[in-house]
Nucleic acid binder design. Sequence first.
DNA 1: CGCACCACAATTTTT
DNA 2: TTGTGGTGCG
Length: 815
Amino acid sequence: MLSEEKQLQFAALRRRVIAQAFGNLNPRQLEGVLTTEGPLLLLAGAGSGKTTVLIHRIANLLRYGRGADAQEVPDHITEEDVRFLAEYVEKTAPDEWETSRANLLCALEPAAPWQVIAITFTNKAAGELKQRLEEKIGPDARDVWAATFHSACVRILRRDIEKLGFPASFTIYDTDDSLRVIKECLKELNMDDKAFQPRTVLGYISRAKDEMLLAQAYLDQCKAKGDFRLQKIANVYLAYEKKLWAAGALDFDDIILHTVRLLQGFDDVRTYYQRKFRYVLIDEYQDTNHLQYLLAALLAGGQKNICVVGDDDQSIYRFRGATIENILSFEQEYQNARVIRLEQNYRSTGNILEAANAVIRNNRGRKGKNLWTDHGEGEKVQFYTAGNEREEGMYVATQLLRAYGEGKQWRDCAVLYRMNALSNQIEMALKSNSIPYRVVGGFRFFERAEVKDMLSYLCVIHNPQDDLRLLRVVNNPPRGIGAKTMEHARGIAAQEGRSLWDVLSNAGQIPALKKAAPKFQTFVDLIRSMQRLAEEVDLPTFYETLIQASGYGEMLSAKTDHESKSRLENIHELSSSISGYLEHAEDPSLGGFLDEVALYTDLDSVEEADNCVTLMTMHAAKGLEFPVVFTVGMEEGVFPGFRAIGEEEELEEERRLCYVALTRAKERLYLTCAAQRMLFGRTSANLPSRFVQEIPAERVQAGGKIRRPQQELLSDTGWSGEERFSQVQRPAAPQPAWPSGTRAAPAAYRKPAPKAQPMLDLRKGDMVRHSAFGTGMVLTVQSMGGDALLEVAFDNVGTKRMMLKAASQFMTKES
DNA sequence: CGCACCACAATTTTT
DNA sequence: TTGTGGTGCG
């Protein structure tokens, strides 16, 4: 037994040795890695190396257990050991034997991989975590539970959900499925789907579930409140719940909800997981909702070793139920919680960071953080006011070409916007300048109708009781089974409390369905034979056969249009998803594949290799970074959106979104707005965003057509652009006064006559020099309206097509 | 049953 | 302006 003094010395040395193993981290990061015991809140600012900390933290848990975070000393430690460690920490190049002895001495109950669970929001994040972990600590990492909330819960539910009365083989409904069910419910309840929009209703149901209210409880609550509209909604919830129950289906919210119910209601289940998971990690904690908070608390309830990582300033999913309260009140929820702030930013330059800091400082509901960097000031933030959205697009294109000319790659650049609707103008501007781009978001592979159709076939084959999916494919491709007929069949099914499948397969015995029975039989036979086939051949072969046998492939091949061709490609593409699944699945099965697909809505940007500019919403940009970032549409009414103006909470969320957008930029940040913008077919004049105004003037370089708006226009927002940007250049000519009484200035008054652009006189064969693309020869000139489409063969970058007007300012004619 | 036409609404969307 | 969903006709 060591003396007390020696024990203290040992504990200190042990921590030092472990710290050395993670030597490339900054002090805060290191603390995050070494603080293994008890509740820990890791406030990780944008670009502060959060994932690195997470990986190292898990590595530490597996290698040293609680060695770095404990005072106790194992009995077997001798004074000789202490002496050894004291020498060891001073060594610059210890040999292998010494290192392994040191590691052995310092490890204190190292965690087994399966005792660690790391929960993320996206599959992408979970995948990256797994991969980086494996690179760091080897194949052991595979037994760490790195999963999304939903996939972790599905895994738990598959084991024990029968305790709640659901079949272990439950199916998962995605949002699209849920909406269909809601619509059915509305119809059956004779409710108007305009007064009760399915989306909105689903939102209410989701919020009810977040409060752990099942339908009946919710109805009771609404009755107590006496709110008639809410009662109607509660009735839909009741019908919705019934339908899902009958179908043995769970929606996304149910997956979490029932897991929480399971853990709360069954001591044995709860105890099992609480014993199993010694260490619980939750990533992106600022995005958790109440249910997810409960889940995390339940899982970590045993040993209270819960580490949550997040940034309250980057919470941008309030509209989906995420509550910033979870992170703000973590310290109250966990009394002895430790808090570590990661504030050193490794991503952006000083000016960008200060701009972001200055904006977010205006929020009240936050923990408070101040990012800093040692990268130096860098360039100022560019703020440009365009006359309208077309000019804004042109400006973006211009600057992109400039960056490209300076040696930046297209993939180094991103254009961010608040609404998808804003991407159009940008796309046009980029197109006409031959700048390659890709738009992120929009249609996702697994959400495409044809892919969902094929998946529905798989669902029905796997589980014929799945009415919703059956309904989707029963007449797709057409089998002469009309909506009327199905309506009938559904009525009978509902009456007799049987599934549609039961009714269809026995249609011969049901007089009312006699006529349709042969057609049903064709379908039933198809499903049955596919079920038999599933037993015999491997999944890819099975799927290819399905494409044939269902007639779906044939239906698409018969059509010649562009759309059908790509649909056909898509359904074949699904088979590579199947192959992908087979490669990494432990115990592959049709059910397993469907599970994975249900939760894997996103086949993600595989084409990262493509060198093109990225266009996406600010939401989609979270977690990404680019050397050059454009933030367009920085206008009151657009960003912050008109819905948010006047609503304190909403406005703070918008500001956080702005913070997220600004902190994506590494080197160069552009903010742009348009004095006048056409949106949804209506033109409006908006003031520059208050967020721009919140940035200190010395961080900004302003340019473009700065307006001198009249005072009454300013009064409601308090915008006073002139004071703020003293260095702004004034428009050359004084602006004419606006007619009184008009709220927005008519275009004619505000738009200075377009500068006479010296349009090049080009014809086939001319040599040109383009500032970004170099020299080339004009191949074709095709006049189009007042403009012309050029095709230019450049010496170094190949042939590009561009609009003459747009290109003129970057090109000169070579003699 | 399929297609064409018109009305209508329209932040953001990790699962 | 754009996309979607519902209705009416061939």
